[in-house]
Write a protein that binds this DNA or RNA. Structure first.
Lengths: 207, 207
DNA sequence: AGATTGAACGATTTGTTGATTATTCAGAAA
DNA sequence: TTTCTGAATAATCAACAAATCGTTCAATCT
């Protein structure tokens, strides 16, 4: 939580506290301004509007997460399958725990992806870049095989979409979701066609 | 549209017309009753409530669709991959066209899956049964290979979830959705592991 | 000059009232 | 008896008023 001492950060910090305590809708610009010992009007010298403060918070938080994902994607001593596993699972766990410990996060996510549709796209694209890098290296090592890496990354994201939208989880617990993600990942990696049973066996034994 | 001459069917028929013309919310029980030349109260001898009429309409419509799917799943002269393809694509196309030609359908779907959460589950289970039968036969013929058919069917559904929820389509056109579904299906069938390149080639050549 | 304020404005939300509607049920009709 | 009615009831919705809030900007301060 180390804050740089800029005014922008002070505002973001104050808004972060208000948003997570009372929610986005129930927080007024006047309150945030007062927390920063300034007038409401002055906030607009630093942010275009209330939503931009929320977006700044989300961006900051998400960037940390992205860094984490990048590390997982290039973790040494793990094969492509394990790294893909770690990547997809981290994604799921982060979303799950974020909503579990702070129900207000759901409101923020909803508002932002409603009013700033490009934001969700931007997140997907960032993760796709990581995925592409992972697939690229995996192919060079002969672990995966595919025609078009960009397209394949897009398809992996499409196939794991369910685990990115809490609205689709209908009260499923984290263990159940993890079991499902495990299954989907297995399908993606191994496919349905009969082939190299020994490889499948080896993968299972390695767990 | 051949109606059995029962009172229930008459009510369903009248409601179907009203719902698709004016929407679920803007249709009153009094109107439906009047269309059937009966009093509002009498509707309740045949249905527990307004929502149950909507559910009856949806069930009737969906049952026809299910029959169609069952036929596709056992179509002769096609291999498992093609039958799976037909099954998943028919699902997507039906949803897409239904919403395209009748925006009221969206309201109905939303209301029903909101107020009757088990209904969506019931649909998924029905389709899963078809999927299991398809996978079962495919395995017997040596076309697919898997450990647990029930679980695999569940995973196929999880991986194709995106194509069942129009809310996740964000203005994608049908061709784009089809291209994505094609890609996801390829991933599911072929997997990422390098294997039998000739099989992949053959599948592509066959299109 | 540049930074900041806070009153003013329009949009949105909230609260309230009255009307509409889904549902029930005592009794009428068959 | 069984089938149906329609007035009564309670829940929901629509519309309007008041209050609140995001945002702007002319005036003030540094």
């Amino acid at each position: 939580m180390a804050e740089k001492d800029t005014v922008k950060d002070q505002i973001v910090d104050a808004a972060k506290k208000r948003f997570s305590h009372f929610g986005y809708a129930k927080t007024t610009m006047a309150e945030v301004a007062s927390d920063c010992a300034m007038s409401p009007g002055n906030l607009y010298r630093f942010f275009q509007g209330k939503l931009d403060i929320a977006e700044a918070i989300a961006t900051e938080d998400y960037s940390r997460h992205l860094e984490h994902l990048r590390k997982l994607a290039v973790a040494p001593g793990k094969d492509a399958r394990q790294r893909l596993h770690d990547l997809l699972f981290e994604e799921l766990r982060r979303t799950y725990h974020k909503l579990e410990k702070d129900p207000r996060a759901y409101e923020m996510a909803r508002v932002i992806s409603q009013e700033r549709p490009t934001f969700a796209n931007w997140m997907l694209e960032n993760e796709r870049k990581i995925l592409i890098a992972l697939l690229d290296e995996a192919e060079r090592r002969g672990e995966f095989k595919m025609d078009d890496k960009e397209f394949t990354a897009e398809m992996v994201q499409a196939a794991t979409m369910k685990f990115r939208y809490p609205q689709l989880w209908s009260k499923l617990t984290l263990p159940k979701l993890e079991r499902e993600l495990e299954g989907v990942m297995n399908l993606i990696v191994m496919g349905l066609c009969p082939h190299m049973t020994e490889m499948r066996r080896a993968a299972e034994a390695a767990e």
